[in-house]
Amino acid sequence: MIEMVKPKHGFWSQIRESVPAYLLVLPTFAVFCVFLYIPFVKALRISTFKFNGIGDLTDYVGFANYWRVLQDEKFYSAFWNTFKLIGVDSLFSIGTGFLLAFVLYKGIKLKRFFNTALFIPYLISMVVIGSIWRIIYDPTIGPLNQFLEAIGLAEWAQPWLSNEHTALPAIMLTWIWHTIPFNMLIIYANLMTMPGDFLEAAEMDGATPLQKLRYIILPYLLPTFGTLLLLTVTTDLKAFDMVWVMTQGGPGGASEVITSYVYRKAFSTQDFGTATAASVIMMLVMVTIMIVAQLAGRMGGKGR
């Protein structure tokens, strides 16, 4: 009998076999290094210096900038406002997106028209949206106050973006209006890929529409909801342009978010070291949330 000799695959032979794959990955890795890793390392270095944005880094202060940020009440206010935005956006944007997607999935007249029309707000620039809604909220020429006066609710009319109690809710409403279409589209796409056998089997067993929604559709969409929640958190942590156009974090910091806090520290007070330290803290929070979410998703998958 002729014995089959197994080829020996040593370490270097495996490396040689992987060379084409490494060459394909190299351009992407180079882009990440140039635009992500190297700037991040430089940001870490800047965060340990007292720096006004001009000249060389000479005044080393160690972790004093981080300590200054963690002692600043305005930072915690901006941090809390950011997570208020995340919570409200997650609840209403994903929830409303699901309702709209479910209605489109069930089928209505002019379905294609509504599918396109409902997605338009997501295609508009954040700066343009902020400018439009700033006019809507305007206390003198704004359509919102004019509408309230027309229906006999003039006492409700107020300077929405100049009132510390309504500035942040007004921004939240605008932000949700912008994010609903994306969530609706993703949920609708996943509903369209759901196997029809599930619903047909449920109908044969006599399941009501509510039971099909509760025991088939919602469980099927749970991974989608988890992904959208993670995207909402990461996107809302970076919210800046709309907030800055509408209120610039005012009045009195009532609508300040983390990104506007960082921008103000860097360009209004010329304290780039503290601003960079705040940015690093924000990034660490974002990475922690993503890691926890992934671990929770894996544990949930094993549990099922």
Rank of each mutant, 00 (worst) to 15 (best):
A278R: 03
P169C: 08
E155Y: 14
M194F: 02
P169W: 12
V88I: 13
F35D: 05
G142T: 05
V127M: 09
G53W: 01
H9D: 10
T28I: 12
R16A: 13
A30L: 15
T269N: 12
E155N: 13
V31K: 01
I120G: 03
N163G: 12
P251I: 10
E149K: 14
L99M: 13
V292G: 02
T82E: 05
K84D: 00
L24H: 06
F75M: 04
G107R: 00
T208R: 14
L24S: 06
K42H: 09
L173N: 13
D138C: 07
T58D: 04
I129Y: 05
R45F: 03
I171L: 15
G300H: 10
G252A: 12
L110C: 10
I120C: 09
L218K: 09
S47L: 01
W156E: 11
F198E: 00
Q270A: 14
I187E: 11
G95A: 06
A117Q: 02
F51C: 03
M172H: 12
K8F: 12
G152M: 04
G152T: 07
S125I: 07
L118I: 09
L222Y: 13
P121F: 07
D241T: 05
F92I: 14
A296D: 06
G196A: 06
F114D: 04
G55C: 02
I120V: 14
E256G: 10
G130K: 00
V19S: 01
A78M: 10
V280D: 00
L210S: 14
A157D: 09
N52W: 02
N190D: 10
F11S: 04
N190A: 06
Y76Q: 06
L144F: 10
R134A: 08
L123V: 10
F98N: 06
W12N: 08
A277Q: 01
I2T: 12
D72P: 00
I38V: 12
G297K: 12
A277F: 02
L213V: 07
T28Q: 09
D72C: 07
L104Q: 03
I281Y: 04
F147K: 03
D72V: 02
K111C: 00
F11I: 13
I180V: 15
W67P: 00
W80R: 14
F102V: 04
G273T: 01
A21V: 14
P219W: 12
